[in-house]
Amino acid sequence: MEVSAWPTQRPLFPIWALGANILLLTGSVLAQEAAVDDETCLACHDDYELSVADSPHRLSSQTSQPVVQIGCISCHSGGEVHAEDPSEDNISNPARLIGQETGRACRKCHQPHRELDNYGFDAHADLELSCSECHRVHNYGREMLLDDRAEFCLRCHQSVQATFERRSNHPIGQGIMTCLSCHRFTRRADHNTAYGLSRVCQDCHPEQGGPFLHEHGAALAYEVGGSGCIECHNPHGSENDRLLRLPGNELCRSCHVEHVTRNHQNLWDEVWSRQPCQTCHIETHGSFVSELYLDPDLPAKLGGNCYDPGCHSLSGQGGK
């Protein structure tokens, strides 16, 4: 019997294939090809046992009290023919399969996370990337990943790489974070529409999270007019402070164009001209006391002039 290394060529719909697939899924893992044991495989592939010894795929035959039954043939089918006539072409290798078919091989024990968590457009699934594009069984790394460093992701996402060189950036280059710190493939169901600030951002920046009495709508992903943290911040990197998309007051003016002059031009022009918006509007993520997100300590900082009767107030009422 010739076993193709490309099971993707196998038609899915014929009844006999369907039945075979169900048997494959429901049968005992080791019972599939009991005629070939691990010792037969390891007689030639003598270093392979060591490559999985520390991993969840440790061979049961090499374990004194195994809980789960895992053998070489759990993942590689066609062992009988291959043992008689060793060739790369007559043994299946999940690493060579594409998306759906790799999932079929791995899902004998694992649930593909893109099926459990994913919705909407998924670039990785759309491109028919397979489990083995990111995961490795032999000589694996953390989380069975081929490589969990940012460099691995940036091989395909090259255009993003330059943004991490910018003056203000998330510390990918320093190794403190990786792409996986924010882009969590196994937790995609945590869609931003369920939160005030973006869920992923809140994990490390909880101090910016609400709810606030006076919310800044643009910062809320669920709001009709908002799109979350990324409305103002470029999470990868920016030449501006605090990952802001635009410098200084220009960011505020990009939305509040009708209300904000370039500088603070008013009666206090002489004193307070050319001040950043954030000098006063310090609580831009949301405020409990001011609907203008003003600094509660502003009177103390500025000597109280702004809150003199007839001028500004914390609530924004009666201000000029």
């Binding site: 605090r242 001040q275 950043p276 954030q278 000098t279 310090i282």
Partner: peptide, 10 residues
């Protein structure tokens, strides 16, 4: 709050 020169006091 900001690393620009103008806001170093904040």
């Amino acid at each position: 709050l900001s690393t620009t020169t103008v806001s170093d006091s904040v």
